[in-house]
Write a protein that binds this DNA or RNA. Structure first.
Length: 371
DNA sequence: AATTTCGGCAACCGCCGGTGT
DNA sequence: CACACCGGCGGTTGCCGAAAT
């Protein structure tokens, strides 16, 4: 027996919202917070079901929503995260704090998916469609690479979710002390609008970041690099690997059986500046996190490594540099990959794949006949 | 100018997991 | 433990404006 639909009551309005309805909903939430969505419509004088009200609020009326065209960087983030996470729009949306999962989903379905398809890339697997006929070995290596990355990211997102929940609880109890309605930090939806002058999304990010920091501080017994607060529009603090100034190996995956190198982030927590340093070493690195061990194979070439780490973990990397650093790193990345002329088969395979994605997102829709 | 087709997006629907009773 | 309720998520639909015919 399934649940009865929330809107089965006759007389409840459906379809597009009118400005008057929007105003009623806004005014009510501004005054009282949303509380129980089911009870809200009656209290707010709306002939809508609670679910409809919640959707209208979270997808349209919320004050911290960024609307309009997606930037190239946002597109890049979406594509990369989709390659890792699949259709987990809410998880992807957590990395684009001012975008709703619905908006991202729509944008993917109407724009990005088509672009990838036109480029001959399967939007589901993010691999060239011709690869479907490639050797089993090559395919499995690529799949294993993505699988590793997905596992890593999934574990991290789960941890994030826990931290967000804890953060909410802390915030909630704090708000209660202030005599405010129950709060929902993630959406800010329960906070009266006149009390949300600070950008809630960034607050959330910083909150998670701080908690995240703690997790890593414990495991690395070191401080945290920063740069997060340097004004990046797309910062994904939760994706930051929180490497210390003392340099901690960065995990990467599956570049074959080449001699390995240790990638380190050298940064300053006070200035927010930092960079990647690759140390050539023999042997392999196992990176342990979330109870999982990720086996690391890294090619020997410093430049290649820096580029590949940037590519394979683009959104991680982006998050740890200042905007200026980021731009320069992207420029060098683009030029390097435009010239790309080295590497093993495995590396070439990965490089080509991500290079395709980068070319895609770096192509202006208006300029390119492809789009 | 009228009609048809297409693309974009807001909104709906059904399912699921968490929680309270 | 079973059930009901609630909120959240992802897939899908349907409306509307723009573009094409």
């Amino acid at each position: 027996m399934g649940r009865s639909p929330c809107c089965e009551k006759v007389g409840l309005k459906k379809g597009p919202w009118t400005p008057e309805e929007d105003q009623k909903l806004l005014a009510y939430i501004e005054e009282h917070g949303h509380g129980s969505w089911r009870a809200l419509p009656a209290k707010a004088g709306l002939q809508r079901c609670g679910k409809s009200c919640r959707l209208r609020w979270t997808n349209y009326l919320r004050p911290d929503i960024k609307r309009g065209k997606f930037s190239l960087q946002e597109e890049q983030t979406i594509i990369q995260l989709h390659a890792l996470l699949g259709n987990r729009w809410s998880a992807i949306a957590t990395h684009l704090p001012k975008r709703t999962d619905n908006e991202i989903k729509n944008y993917w379905n109407t724009h990005l998916k088509k672009r990838l398809a036109k480029m001959g890339i399967d939007p589901v697997t993010h691999k060239p469609k011709s690869d479907a006929l490639s050797s089993v070995d090559g395919q499995s290596k690529t799949a294993a690479t993505l699988s590793h990355m997905a596992q890593w990211e999934s574990a991290r997102l789960e941890a994030e979710a826990r931290l967000v929940r804890e953060s909410k609880l802390r915030s909630s109890s704090f708000q209660q002390q202030l005599g405010s309605p129950a709060t929902d930090l993630a959406s800010t939806s329960a906070q009266p609008l006149n009390k949300t002058s600070a950008p809630p999304a960034s607050s959330l990010c910083l909150d998670v970041l701080k908690a995240w920091q703690g997790v890593w501080s414990k495991s690395t017994k070191s401080g945290l690099m920063s740069g997060i607060g340097s004004g990046l529009g797309l910062e994904s603090p939760t994706s930051t690997l929180s490497f210390s100034e003392n340099a901690v190996p960065i995990p990467s995956v599956g570049f074959g059986d080449n001699p390995t190198a240790t990638v380190e982030f050298v940064g300053s927590s006070s200035t927010g500046e930092g960079g990647l340093v690759v140390k050539e070493e023999g042997g392999e690195e196992d990176w342990k996190g979330f109870g999982k061990t990720i086996h690391i194979h890294l090619p020997e070439c410093k430049e290649r490594m820096e580029n590949s780490v940037t590519l394979m973990t683009g959104f991680h990397h982006d998050a740890v540099f200042t905007a200026e650093d980021q731009n320069s790193s992207e420029e060098s990345r683009d030029s390097d990959y435009a010239n790309g002329s080295h590497g093993t088969d495995d590396f070439e395979e990965n490089k080509n794949y991500w290079n395709n994605i980068l070319n895609l997102v770096n192509s202006s829709p208006s300029d390119s006949p492809v789009f």
